[in-house]
Design a protein around this nucleic acid. Structure first.
Lengths: 190, 190
DNA sequence: TGTACATCAGTGAACGCGCGTTCACTGATGTAC
DNA sequence: TGTACATCAGTGAACGCGCGTTCACTGATGTAC
């Protein structure tokens, strides 16, 4: 049943994409390779034709998930009147939609504490993605020195990541909404 | 080998305290009951004399961990000249010490994404602890209407939780320090 | 106060289960001539 | 272009392992009389 090189490459990409979604939905440790491969339309045995270990897939899925968030964030900010870019980004990142759809959400918010305990290559992928996000956000601070803009972006992103994380933990829906809303409002005045 | 009621109660408290530390250090899922009980100086078999399930212990450990952070935070803010309470809290929460000692750190930062996927009773414990923290922080905004102070506290805590989480993920030590530093600086101007 | 018995904290072996990983196998694809 | 052979993506059974949980047992503690 060998597949062509093209098909195999497509399969590999599908596994990574599926993994990013499943890890986001269920967590890294809670997602077994069997379930994951089934979600990608395969049996678990074929996994090691594409990846050396689960850890390797985790790193690639993290990179893919971050890439996706960077694109979404860039799209939200682009074609916006000057100075409202950050607001558009916050509007998207701090939406109840993002809070409730963990499967295609930001890995930093969805897997934060698990990533902190992951191996170096996964954390390096997360770091690279975070820096891209920092860059996108920093560009929204017009007429601001680059290093100051970057410093502000670090804080804005920390606040957004923490807010989404907390909005998912909290059992009171009103409190959850307030965390997102207040953080949005605060960022608008920055 | 039955122990007295007093000893048993002490043992139970020791298990919860040990669990809070071990979950913080290794994550909830990565901490097995055998290792945990051994860390508390017991064998794993006795676990179910004290708790109905691992989930129940997780909820209690989360409550205990939050209680500890609330105390630390209150202590940092007390006996401070007016208006520097928030700064003192940020100084402590955003310290490299807090970042590097996950075992007695804030569960919201150390276990955030795992808590978001935990059962209701654990999330309720996290929520209760979070609200206590919100209250402590809100009290630092002197001469501010209570609801405004609470709103600001939600944002300040989100930023602190996100910053500590990110500072632990990131592989670049300078970036990690900058995240904490810039968030500290930003909160000082709030 | 002393005696007989029930309780139950803690031990250590055992349970089924799902995990990540390995492997023999299949058969279409890719390659060498 | 056609033939023979090597490759290797994907299958499905099997592996050892550690997990959460259960259980028979021990013996000091607590209780009833």
């Amino acid at each position: 049943m060998k597949k062509s090189k093209l098909e195999a490459a497509e399969t590999r990409r599908r596994i990574v994409r599926t993994a990013a979604a499943e890890f986001g939905r269920n967590g890294i440790n809670e997602t077994g390779l069997s379930d994951l491969m089934a979600a990608a339309g395969l049996t678990h045995g074929g996994f090691y034709r594409h990846f050396g270990s689960k850890d390797q897939l985790v790193a690639e899925a993290c990179a893919a998930g971050m890439e996706s968030v960077v694109e979404t964030t860039e799209a939200a900010a682009s074609h916006r009147p000057a100075n409202s870019g950050l607001q558009a980004i916050a509007e998207r990142y701090l939406s109840t939609d993002h809070r409730d759809n963990q499967s295609d959400g930001c890995p930093l918010a969805g897997l934060g504490s698990e990533l902190a305990r992951s191996d170096d290559s996964t954390r390096a992928a997360a770091t690279a993605g975070f820096l891209k996000l920092v860059d996108v956000v920093a560009r929204q601070y017009r007429r601001t020195k680059p290093d100051v803009a970057k410093a502000r972006a670090l804080v804005a992103l920390s606040a957004m990541i923490g807010a989404v994380t907390m909005s998912r933990i909290v059992t009171d829906p009103k409190l959850s909404a307030a965390i997102l809303q207040q953080t949005k409002k605060h960022l608008a005045n920055t």
